[in-house]
């Protein structure tokens, strides 16, 4: 990942330069989840969202988590991000257990979450200002990131003036600004129309390759999961468990045409069957 010399080093939790550290460290998965359970209670009803989730994510890979709606995949992502706490089990990032939000795990939410009172460049520079980067340097870095996500020229616009797809791109840029070890994406393109969604998927692929970052991407869209991911972790319906992890053997870089290829279709059918079993298997449906 490009790291201009002008930026201060981040806290020692997450030096992101690949290749540093001993062979031990590069062998160890970046994120390791063990025995994760999450139970909610409302009054006397218990709601098992996640059940004994086990997962490992290697540095630099693009992992998609695929599952039917309501299976708890968002909750899983939020636990990794530290926005929720697990009822039991652990999440480790670089060998250290986490329980609170932190700059090392950057989250991109379903809805664009830019501060409406700041310009685009102000929004993207904000994470840098938080750690004390002087304004000018922060803005310069923000502009670089804007270029990375193809939003140059919209520096001084306000979020209200941008379309949904552009706002999400700005959110991605902002999350990249805090140089996270892993990017967590919670169905970020779900609110966009089909065409924009495809464009964004291509963009994301490109950004991921250019930035060399690790991504955990949650979605219920099979095409999206297969197109984007190196590996796909399939989740069951509530209570969510990982039922299968599949390597995707499509070559990289992947152009959008890959979506029509027979290989992808084969994967699609396979997952479609898997998911259908999950949806039919769940009897509780949606709202408690």
């Amino acid at each position: 990942m490009t790291q201009p010399a002008s930026l201060p080093a981040q806290s020692d939790d997450h030096s992101t330069t690949a290749g540093s550290g001993s062979a031990e460290e590069t062998d160890r998965p970046l994120v390791r989840i063990r025995g994760l359970d999450k139970v909610f209670r409302r009054g006397s009803n218990l709601n098992h969202a996640l059940s004994a989730v086990e997962l490992e994510v290697s540095e630099g890979e693009f992992l998609t988590i695929l599952g039917p709606s309501g299976c708890g995949k968002s909750t899983l992502l939020h636990i990794i991000g530290g926005f929720e706490t697990a009822t039991s089990g652990t999440v480790e990032v670089r060998g250290r257990p986490i329980s609170k939000p932190g700059r090392d795990r950057g989250m991109v939410f379903q809805q664009p979450t830019l501060f409406p009172w700041r310009t685009i460049v102000g929004n993207i520079a904000w994470p840098l200002e938080v750690v004390g980067v002087p304004r000018r340097a922060a803005r310069a870095r923000a502009r670089e990131l804007l270029e990375l996500v193809n939003l140059s020229g919209f520096d001084d616009s306000y979020p209200a003036e941008l379309s949904g797809g552009m706002r999400q791109r700005a959110c991605i840029a902002r999350t990249l600004a805090h140089e996270p070890a892993v990017l967590l994406m919670d169905e970020p393109f779900g609110a966009l129309d089909a065409q924009t969604r495809e464009v964004m998927q291509e963009e994301l692929n490109r950004i991921w390759q250019d930035a060399g970052i690790t991504v955990i991407f949650v979605t219920h869209d099979i095409h999206e999961a297969v197109f984007l991911g190196d590996r796909i972790a399939v989740m069951s319906a509530r209570p969510g468990r990982i039922v299968d992890i599949v390597d995707i053997d499509l070559t990289r870089p992947r152009a959008i045409e890959v979506k029509k290829s027979p290989e992808l279709l084969a994967y699609h059918n396979r997952f479609w069957d898997l998911l259908r079993d999950q949806v039919h298997g769940s009897d509780t449906g949606s709202r408690p």
């Binding site: 991000g81 530290g82 926005f83 609170k100 939000p101 932190g102 700059r103 795990r105 950057g106 989250m107 939410f109 809805q111 979450t113 501060f115 009172w117 904000w126 994470p127 938080v130 750690v131 902002r174 999350t175 805090h178």
Partner: peptide, 25 residues
């Protein structure tokens, strides 16, 4: 929006910063 607060926490913002840059505006 709760997620704006999450965004702030994600970036490591402390209490004062959250007050100034998120809650107040």
């Amino acid at each position: 929006d709760r997620q704006l607060v999450h965004v702030a926490e994600n970036a490591g913002a402390g209490r004062l910063r959250k007050f100034r840059d998120v809650f107040l505006p």
